[in-house]
Every structure is written in C-alpha cells, then in structure tokens.
C-alpha cells in the first residue's frame, strides 16, 4: 500500500496540472465562443417560436372576433335592408295610393270641369242655334209674310191668326 502512494505527487502532479489546464482552457474557449452563442441562438429561436405561436393564437382570436363582428354587421345590414325595403314598400304603396287619389280627384275635377264646359258650350250652342233659328224663322217669316202679305186680305188674316196665337201663348 505504501508502495502505491510513494512518489504519487512526483509522478502524477504533472498530469493533474495538465488536465486542469486543458479543462479550464476548454471551458473558457467553449464557454465564450461556443456555448454562449449557441445557447443564445437556441433561446432566441425558442423565444421567437413561442412568440410566433402566441401571435398566431392572437391572430386566430382576432380573426374569430372579426368574423363574429362581420356576421353581426351582416345581420344588422340585413335587418336594415329589410327595414328599408319595408319602408320603401310602404312608401311605394302610399305614393301609389296618393297618386291614385290625386288622379281620381283630378279626374273628377276635370270631368266636372268638362261637364261644366260642355254645359256652357251646349248652352252657348243652343243659344246660337236658337238665335239662328229665330233669325231664320224671322227671315222665313219675313219672306213668307212678304209673300203672303202682298195682298191686303192675306195681311188681315195673318194678323188675325197671330192674334189668336198670342192669346194661346
């Protein structure tokens, strides 16, 4: 046993020192130039992936929200459209009715006016016909009279007739 540990330091201290130096140099070099950038890159990548996932989730939610909103808007628009259509229909009906009424009123008015005019014209026409008839009658009568009254007896007879007629009239 004593033999085993004899000159232990003399023979092996060197290796221990070399191993220690090698390890420390390796630790420093790898730590500075390998582990640090590698770990940083991995962490960064993981962070960005997580970020992207979160963003995707958020986008999905936003999408759902937008879709929902769109639907709501659509529904609202549809309702509004229905309302507008209904109003339009009502208005159309109203306008038609009003127009009908107005037309009817106008028609009635025009008919009335026409009938009045017709009556007027009729009256005027009748008057002129009457006048013409009167004048014609007078002319005829005149001529007849002239012819009949060329002699004195005929004149007296006529006067007598006329007098009879006037009595009746």
């Amino acid at each position: 046993m004593g033999e085993l540990f004899e000159n232990l330091l003399n023979d092996h201290l060197g290796f221990v020192v070399w191993a220690l130096v090698a390890f420390v140099i390796l630790l420093v070099l790898l730590g500075k130039f390998a582990w640090k950038p590698i770990m940083a890159a991995i962490t960064e990548r993981e962070r960005s992936i997580e970020d992207a996932l979160l963003k995707a989730e958020a986008a999905k939610e936003e999408m759902a929200r937008l879709t929902n909103e769109n639907e709501q808007l659509l529904k609202q628009a549809r309702a509004e459209r229905d309302l507008i259509l209904k109003e339009a229909r009502q208005m159309k009906d109203q306008i038609i009715n009003e127009a009908k009424e107005a037309a009817q009123a106008e028609g009635a008015r025009m008919i009335e006016k026409a009938s009045i005019e017709i009556n007027n014209q009729k009256a005027i026409a009748l008057a002129s016909v009457k006048e013409q008839v009167a004048s014609l009658s007078i002319e005829i009568a005149e001529k007849v009279l002239q012819k009949q009254l060329e002699n004195k007896t005929q004149q007296d007879a006529l006067v007598a007739d006329l007098l009879k007629e006037v009595k009746i009239g």
Binding site: N10, D11, G14, F15
Partner: peptide, 18 residues
C-alpha cells in the same frame, strides 16, 4: 533525489486530452 523531481511530461493521456 527522486522525491525532488516532478514529472510534467506530455504523456499519452495529455496528448489524447488535447
């Protein structure tokens, strides 16, 4: 005298380590 010398040789294991 052997106790006064320390072996810092670049041995097989040192090279393998490098």
């Amino acid at each position: 005298t052997s106790k006064k010398i320390y072996d810092f040789s670049i041995t097989k294991n040192v090279i393998a380590m490098w």
